[in-house]
């Protein structure tokens, strides 16, 4: 690529977007490593990864389309796909973690309203394990 085809303003904009994407990904990884409980730990990397991919996709779209190369449209696919899949994965993993924590007897929010029970003895039911599916056999404890 010859450097003259890219305007200077666009060049600095692309560089700033690339730096922001790298910092966002690093912040997400630090949050994944440093937070204490699982539900806190779920929070940072999803945001960091989604925003990092979005910002870097915009930077890549600008770079490839304004530098006179082949038109790249895959970034739009990547951004849209990731905006759908990252919350889905986080939702599934959170539901699995809630199920496992509730089955291990920890005090997590239960589905008492969906099951027709009242919320008064919620803590006792969670601790004593009244609504635990006994046929499920997890191989490891939480």
């Amino acid at each position: 690529m010859n450097a003259s085809t890219l305007p200077v303003v666009l060049e600095y904009l692309i560089a700033a977007l690339i730096v922001i994407a790298g910092l966002l990904s690093l912040i997400g990884a630090i949050g994944l490593l440093r937070f204490k409980s699982f539900y806190q730990r779920l929070h940072a990397p999803s945001l960091g990864a989604t925003m990092g991919i979005t910002v870097l996709g915009i930077a890549s779209l600008l770079y490839f389309n304004f530098s006179g190369q082949a038109v790249g449209f895959q970034e739009i696919l990547i951004i849209v796909f990731l905006l759908f899949t990252v919350p889905l994965t986080a939702l599934i993993v959170t539901r699995a973690a809630l199920y496992r924590h509730r089955r291990a007897g920890r005090d997590v929010p239960g589905r008492d309203n969906l099951r027709g029970g009242s919320a008064e003895n919620l803590h006792e039911r969670l601790v004593t394990g009244d609504d635990i599916d006994e046929e499920y056999d997890p191989r490891e404890s939480c």
């Binding site: 690339i18 994407a21 790298g22 990904s25 997400g28 990884a29 994944l32 699982f38 730990r41 779920l42 990397p45 999803s46 990864a49 990092g52 991919i53 870097l56 996709g57 890549s60 970034e75 990547i78 990731l82 990252v86 994965t89 986080a90 993993v93 699995a96 973690a97 496992r100």
Partner: peptide, 20 residues
């Protein structure tokens, strides 16, 4: 579930590495 979240973010970060 921590390991699954770590694997999830590992592939997203590798996508970011490929874009870079």
């Amino acid at each position: 579930q921590d390991r699954i979240m770590a694997l999830d973010n590992l592939y997203i970060t590798s996508m970011l590495l490929l874009l870079l």
